[in-house]
Design a protein around this nucleic acid. Structure first.
Length: 267
DNA sequence: ATGACGGATCTAATCCGA
């Protein structure tokens, strides 16, 4: 049976990198592609070009300049909706219900980055990030974990020691501080979600999905972090067949600083 | 400093990413 393939990718501007998205869809032909940081209002989203690639079903929630998520699919949706985390009105989540298979729900998240200073008392961006993941725990850890579901996205947290190039040097760096990694692990454990990457690639093997634009030679330095995730609800356990990071996409011309992450399921 | 790039925006210098 043909596996069900899902990809998540922080694209860092879908309009600027439309040719890269088309290239990815051509080469990988996923069933579903979830994009984050589309930086594109809904009325400017390149629907027509992406439909032409074989993805007629598009659920998008964008805004001007920042954030933005979109889910493209070969299969029709029964419905889609967004939840307004922290009641800020920003475009950080979209969910779709597929009308094929076991009534699968797919959540696509762009969790706040959190700024520089890992102290909620002096950094409102970090305070927002902690509030966001707290709200995720209440919802994603409860009722939403009980259905067949896949949760993907740029969660902006690298939870485990081998998810960063140096655990010790990043303990006080936003994305790998204990308050963040413990919060993400609490969401996952509360909902009994399966981290599909670590399910098939256990620690201590390093897995990175993001390399900063700022290091001259990202590939040689390899100072990466695993910020992009694909989780599966417990009812999909036993269907998780393969996972990989498409690291070569980080080396494409004018790349995103995130690489796409793929997981395949055999439903 | 890990590090000093890259995107969007009322096209210039500013905010943001993580």
């Amino acid at each position: 049976m043909k596996p069900f393939k899902i990809i998540t990718w922080n694209i860092n501007s879908v309009r600027l990198r439309l040719p890269l998205v088309e290239q990815l869809l051509d080469h990988e032909a996923p069933d579903v592609l979830c994009l984050q940081e589309t930086k594109c209002p809904d009325d400017k989203f390149p629907d027509a070009a992406l439909r032409k690639c074989g993805y007629p079903h598009i659920a998008k929630f964008g805004q001007k300049g920042y954030h933005g998520v979109a889910t493209l699919s070969r299969h029709p949706f029964k419905s889609s909706f967004s939840r307004d985390f922290c009641a800020k009105g920003d475009a950080r989540h979209i969910a779709v219900d597929l009308s094929v298979g076991p009534g699968l729900r797919i959540h696509n998240f762009y969790v706040p980055a959190g700024g520089d200073e890992p102290d909620p008392a002096i950094n409102p961006k970090f305070e927002h990030k902690l509030r966001f993941v707290d709200e995720m725990k209440a919802w994603i850890g409860g009722e939403e974990a009980a259905r067949p579901a896949i949760l993907v996205g740029d969660l902006n947290i690298a939870p485990y020691e081998s998810d960063v190039w140096s655990h010790k040097q990043l303990l006080k760096v936003v994305s790998h501080t204990p308050v963040e990694t413990e919060a993400l692990e609490a969401i996952r454990e509360t909902g009994n979600w399966i981290d599909t990457q670590r399910h098939l690639i256990p620690e201590p093997e390093p897995v990175f999905t993001w390399w900063s634009y700022r290091s001259g030679n990202w590939e040689v330095a390899n100072k990466g972090r695993r910020l992009d995730h694909i989780w599966a609800s417990q009812s999909l356990s036993g269907t998780i067949a393969a996972t990989r990071v498409l690291k070569h996409a980080r080396g494409w011309d004018r790349p995103s600083d995130h690489a796409p992450v793929v997981t395949e399921f055999t439903f």
